[in-house]
């Protein structure tokens, strides 16, 4: 098996999900410079809603494709409602408050959403029903599943559609104008409140799809699943340059690759048995086990944070963005 190619495939799948979630962060940030901390929870609610619908319809004789579509079609409006609610209840009243206030509120909303979800869907890990056969294809010594192909293709389609919305429609123009300068946009007759609300709604819709993707990829859903996923997607948005749509896509895929390759290779790289010179203690353990790994793939979650800290320290504007992370 080709580990490298395999990790690339896994990384692209993961990256596709990060990219879709990162778009939600970046659009909101681009327009009102707010880190919508609760965005990850919207992803979780999307996954949970879809899971409920799919599990309910599974075995009812309805064709599997219809069931999955029904799950997505249920998740999207639910998430949009949550996204809109977040904006109205938690963020809009604080639009002119000190910068940190909406962030604190967002953290509060995140905790509230998590625990409401726990009340609704229990604190257990829920299995995502497998209603499709998930074919496995082999490409040059690596395996790629039908779900992975679907996730990657679907995410590319969504990104294309979103780009078209932002750069080709009146709404997109209004969004970009509001992002550029809300005061001027308002003078031009743009209803900024509406544009901001729509941005949240679009982001939440994307989050819903991402939730279904990540749920079917891992096969499980849990009320805390959105949190780390959200953080990683935020890191991806920062990596690409927050506020920049293409940046979020690029950052998402890159972060997915970094994580997959990192998890795939860190064990080998930190295997002390590869050291040319080994202290007695190490040599003894290597003789017994053949490997003495300092950091294994269980450190996978660290990479996203290291990327985030590294980007903010050395290139706060991200790969494609303008300079924002630092004070003037």
């Amino acid at each position: 098996m080709d580990i490298f190619l395999q990790q690339i495939i896994n990384g692209l799948t993961l990256g596709a999900v990060y990219a879709i979630v990162a778009l939600g962060y970046t659009m909101v940030y681009g327009i009102i410079q707010l880190i919508n901390f609760a965005h990850g929870e919207v992803v979780m609610i999307g996954a949970m809603t879809a899971l409920t619908v799919i599990a309910g319809l599974a075995g009812s004789g309805v064709p599997p494709l219809v069931i999955v579509l029904a799950g997505v079609l249920a998740a999207v409006p639910v998430c949009m409602a949550v996204g809109y609610g977040l904006e109205r209840v938690a963020y809009r009243p604080l639009r002119h408050a000190p910068r940190l206030s909406p962030l604190i509120t967002a953290i509060g909303m995140s905790i509230v959403l998590q625990h409401v979800a726990m009340m609704v869907w229990s604190r257990n890990f829920l299995a995502f029903p497998q209603i499709f056969p998930n074919p496995v294809f082999f490409v040059g010594g690596a395996a790629i599943t039908g779900v992975q192909i679907t996730i990657i293709v679907l995410s590319l389609l969504i990104m294309g559609a979103l780009t078209a919305v932002v750069f080709r429609t009146r709404l997109g123009t209004a969004m970009r104008a509001t992002a550029e300068n809300p005061e001027v946009a308002r003078l031009m007759g743009i209803d900024c409140d509406r544009v901001i609300a729509l941005t949240f709604i679009i982001g939440a819709g994307l989050a819903a799809v991402a939730g279904v993707m990540v749920g079917s990829y891992y096969g499980i859903a849990h009320y805390t699943m959105g949190f780390v996923l959200g953080l990683k997607a935020f890191s991806a948005a920062v990596l690409g340059g927050i506020g920049n749509i293409a940046g979020a896509m690029l950052g998402g895929f890159l972060l997915g690759l970094v994580e997959a390759l990192g998890a795939g290779y860190i064990g080998d790289l930190t295997n002390l048995c590869h050291l040319p010179w080994q202290p007695d203690l190490v040599a003894a353990r290597c003789a017994a086990d053949g490997h003495l790994v300092l950091f294994g793939s269980n450190y996978q979650d660290v990479f996203a944070f290291l990327v985030l800290i590294g980007v903010l320290m050395f290139r706060p504007e991200g790969l494609l963005g303008e300079r924002v992370g630092q004070r003037a």
């Binding site: 953080l231 920062v238 996203a304 706060p316 924002v324 630092q326």
Partner: peptide
Amino acid sequence: KLRGDYLAIVTLG
């Protein structure tokens, strides 16, 4: 040196 909201996320990480 990071702006407040970025600092918050980095400390969280």
